[in-house]
Amino acid sequence: MESEYSEKARYDEREQGSDHVPNPAPDLLGHWEDILAIAGLITTSVNRDAVISEAVEHLARRLHKRARCAILEGDKLVLRHSSGHYESPLDGKLVSEQSVVWEIFKEGKPLNLTDEYQGNGYEHTLKNGISLKAVVPFGYLDPVTEEEKNLGALIVDSGEKGLPISEQEFEYLKIIGLLIGSVVGRIELFDQLTASYVTQQKILKETAHNFRNRMVVIGGLCRRILKLNTDKDLGDDVSLLYKQVRALEEHVDRFESYMGDPRSD
């Protein structure tokens, strides 16, 4: 059997949007190859937004649900990536601080809201709020500071159908959340290392350039002393010093040539 659904069914799902919930639901836990596929896809990227966007699109296709992602920007949660049918664009929309999504994000623990009462007392961020949804916060452990970095939260629901997220779907969503966190953590670390390397390289270039300038000044003074000097012993010492200065200038010139011209930065 090629898959749970025929080509026509898959076409119908695409036409109806990811709001459409097929029946029966796929056996998500049995499809580890699917998890490996998305893992391989997002781990090859070095762009955080591309990773999250691809993961959200994947979730919408795989679960046949609406999926979106809120990213922590400063002290605000902002919706930045979404897939499925929504009444209005979500990009840039602030998540209400009185919403259950904010509460779950602060707690840092995934929660599957399968009963309407679980959303009582909270505000909805979207105009037509859906109480039944799954929310999975994600982040990563900074390997340098060993501090937990909270990045955002994945949110999945069935749209107007109002169907709860199954236990299998919720487990699948948590796996994708862990994947996003680990991949984004790797990207953040790579960016830190790159920035550190660039900074160190710039410091080395500037230091070498300034050092060479000082050597040129000292060399000039040595030549001036030799022209004016009448003391043989002093002249010999100054000549030796000048030779050492010239040798240092040559070393610095080779170093600058290897590092690149600091004046080009």
Rank of each mutant, 00 (worst) to 15 (best):
40 G>T: 10
39 A>S: 15
253 D>Y: 01
44 T>I: 04
37 A>W: 03
32 W>Q: 07
119 G>P: 09
201 Q>H: 12
10 R>P: 02
60 A>I: 06
12 D>F: 09
252 V>I: 14
42 I>S: 01
182 S>Q: 15
162 G>D: 09
34 D>R: 12
224 R>L: 11
199 T>L: 09
122 Y>V: 08
64 H>D: 07
178 L>S: 15
93 K>T: 15
77 L>P: 01
250 E>V: 11
84 G>K: 05
1 M>G: 14
238 V>N: 02
255 F>Q: 13
71 I>F: 00
212 R>V: 07
180 I>D: 05
1 M>D: 12
262 P>T: 08
124 H>W: 02
148 E>T: 12
42 I>G: 02
65 K>N: 06
251 H>P: 00
247 A>V: 04
200 Q>G: 09
64 H>F: 03
224 R>K: 14
158 S>G: 10
88 S>C: 02
172 Y>V: 08
249 E>S: 06
7 E>M: 08
57 E>F: 00
36 L>R: 10
129 G>A: 07
10 R>E: 15
6 S>D: 10
216 V>H: 07
150 N>Q: 13
12 D>C: 08
123 E>T: 12
233 D>L: 12
246 R>W: 00
17 G>E: 01
126 L>G: 04
202 K>H: 13
92 G>C: 09
239 S>A: 15
16 Q>H: 08
7 E>H: 06
256 E>Q: 14
8 K>F: 11
53 S>Q: 11
15 E>L: 12
179 L>P: 06
118 Q>K: 05
198 V>T: 11
169 E>A: 10
9 A>C: 07
144 V>Y: 03
262 P>F: 09
